[in-house]
Computed example of a mutant assay.
Amino acid sequence: MFRGSSFHTIDAKGRIIVPVRFRSLIQAGGGNGVMVSKLDNGLVAYPFDEWSRIENSIMSAPQKDELMRRFIRVFIGSAAECFSDKQERILIPPPLRHYAGLEKEIVLVGVLTHFEIRSRENWDKENAQQEDDMTQAEVGAEIAKLLL
């Protein structure tokens, strides 16, 4: 499972270093790279086996709803295979970098089955929003159910 956060930089060519603790999970997932797509103003990166599971789930779901078709179009249509180079870096394509606002400082966040790639600025905003969300009783109650 992908866990924890790592603070890194993205170089001028759009390459990022994947943390060592994530590399073994990626390799166990069927390759030396990840599928990357956009979601929630950031990027999501899935090992190939997990991406295959997602695609199978999407193909088996009814696609009558306009919002679901749009999601599939954007999520799958934006996806890119990003392979590791000899220095264990992955190259993030320019359209995905632009979408996520990746310029210099980035954060890789483990989210169990995948990891997210976010700009440091957006990550700091996300953390602040989460702190605000915790003050809402119903959110706190739902989180407490997960942790108990």
Score class of each variant (00 low, 15 high):
F2P: 09
F2H: 02
G4E: 11
S5A: 14
S6C: 10
S6A: 14
F7E: 11
F7H: 04
F7Q: 11
H8P: 10
H8R: 14
T9Y: 07
I10P: 01
D11S: 01
K13F: 13
K13T: 12
R15C: 02
I16V: 15
I16W: 11
I17G: 11
G29Q: 02
G29C: 11
G30Y: 02
N32I: 11
V36K: 08
S37E: 10
L39N: 04
G42F: 03
Y46G: 05
F48K: 00
F48D: 10
D49M: 11
E50N: 03
S52H: 13
E55V: 13
N56L: 10
S57T: 15
S57K: 15
S57W: 13
S60K: 12
P62F: 11
P62K: 07
K64W: 10
D65V: 00
E66D: 14
M68K: 12
R70N: 15
R70A: 15
R70I: 08
R70C: 13
F71V: 00
R73F: 01
R73H: 03
V74P: 04
I76R: 14
A79Q: 01
F83E: 14
D85T: 06
Q87A: 12
Q87R: 03
E88S: 14
R89A: 02
L91N: 10
P94L: 12
P94C: 07
P95V: 06
L96W: 01
L96T: 03
H98L: 08
E103Q: 14
K104T: 05
K104V: 01
L108N: 09
V109S: 01
G110P: 03
G110A: 10
H114S: 00
F115V: 05
E116I: 08
I117M: 04
R118G: 00
S119P: 04
E121T: 02
N122K: 08
N122P: 02
D124V: 10
K125H: 09
K125I: 00
E126H: 00
N127R: 11
Q129Y: 09
Q130F: 12
E131S: 10
E131D: 08
D132R: 15
M134P: 09
M134H: 04
E138M: 09
E138V: 05
G140A: 13
A141D: 12
A141L: 13
K145V: 07
K145R: 15
L148C: 07
